[in-house]
Simulated scan of single mutants.
Amino acid sequence: MADLVLKMSISIDGFVAAARPDSDWMFRGSTPDSAAWVRDVLAGAGTHVVGRRLFETWIGLWPTSESPMAAPINDAPKVVVTRQADFDLAGLSAGISPSSGPASWAETRVVTEFGEIERLKAEPGDYLLAQGGVSFARSLIAAGLVDEYRFAVLPVVLGSGEALFAGLPDELDLRLVSSTVFAGGAMGNVYRP
């Protein structure tokens, strides 16, 4: 079975989105060793499971990017989770071809129910890596689908914003599996329920 791993950047005061939309908080603590950790998390995924809004950003960025982060995203299959039954994946991916970008983007599939994620988890293979906005992440947590959390904990206090675990129906106990401290003060923390 494949685990569902949720990867998020998080401030030391527990926010995954800043109140100020123009804040660069996610990038201020980045160093080569922290970037390598993120790249390894991306590369270990058998499938990337992303929310619709993040996918719409990604498809305009990663297929033609030369960033070291692009290859592990481009090379793996992608699943877009959306509540929009009329989501136009074909329109978004029409411009992606082997000559203009990785073919794996054109092969992306859309799911509208978490039952599809449960079926993916039942298949053998490398972990499913979930990324997206706070509401997408909260939905996965509330549905009990997350087997592991990989947090890039940044040495930033936001004071306000969107807290990942706010509004969940019950308490959640997590066990720290590993913690890596990076040169810029960020940490890579891995937790399991």
Rank of each mutant, 00 (worst) to 15 (best):
A85R: 07
I96A: 00
L145G: 09
D24M: 12
S34P: 10
D3W: 02
I117E: 03
F151Y: 09
E116P: 01
R150Q: 15
V156W: 00
L92E: 13
F136W: 04
E107K: 10
S139K: 05
P68I: 12
R150W: 01
F165M: 05
S30I: 10
W62H: 06
P21G: 12
T180E: 15
A130Q: 10
I73K: 05
V41M: 12
S99N: 05
Y127V: 07
W25S: 11
T57V: 09
L4N: 03
G14C: 12
P169S: 15
D13P: 02
V5R: 15
I96T: 03
L129T: 08
V80C: 01
D173A: 13
D24R: 14
I117H: 06
Q131R: 09
K7P: 00
W25H: 11
L176F: 00
V38Q: 06
R192A: 14
V79R: 06
L176R: 04
L174R: 15
G132I: 02
M69P: 01
S160H: 12
E116H: 13
I96E: 00
I96K: 00
G167Y: 04
L174I: 08
M1G: 15
V157G: 01
E107H: 08
V80F: 02
V16H: 00
G14N: 14
A152K: 01
P21E: 15
S179N: 14
Y191G: 06
P193L: 14
G44S: 14
A45R: 09
R83Q: 06
P21M: 08
A90S: 12
T31I: 08
S139N: 14
M8R: 11
P155S: 13
G60T: 11
S67Y: 05
S100R: 10
A166V: 04
S11C: 10
G60P: 06
V177E: 15
A18T: 11
L128W: 03
I117W: 03
S99F: 02
Y149F: 15
G51E: 08
L61N: 06
G14E: 14
P98C: 11
T82D: 02
V110P: 03
T82N: 02
I12N: 03
T47I: 15
V50K: 02
A142I: 01
A71V: 07
W58A: 06
G161K: 07
L140R: 03
R150N: 04
T64Y: 01
V181Q: 02
V80N: 00
S99H: 06
A94G: 07
E56W: 05
V146G: 06
D22I: 14
L168Q: 14
L129I: 08
D13A: 11
F15Q: 08
L168Y: 10
T31M: 07
G60K: 04
L168C: 07
G185V: 07
Q84S: 13
K121Y: 07
L172C: 03
K7C: 10
V111W: 08
F151R: 07
M69H: 11
R192T: 14
Y127L: 05
V111E: 14
Y149K: 08
V81R: 01
L42C: 05
P21Y: 05
M8S: 15
T57R: 10
Y191H: 14
A130S: 10
I73H: 09
E107I: 00
R83C: 04
E113T: 13
G115A: 14
D147M: 11
A43Q: 05
T64E: 06
W25K: 12
G115V: 07
E162T: 00
F151P: 00
R28D: 10
S135G: 04
S100C: 06
D40G: 14
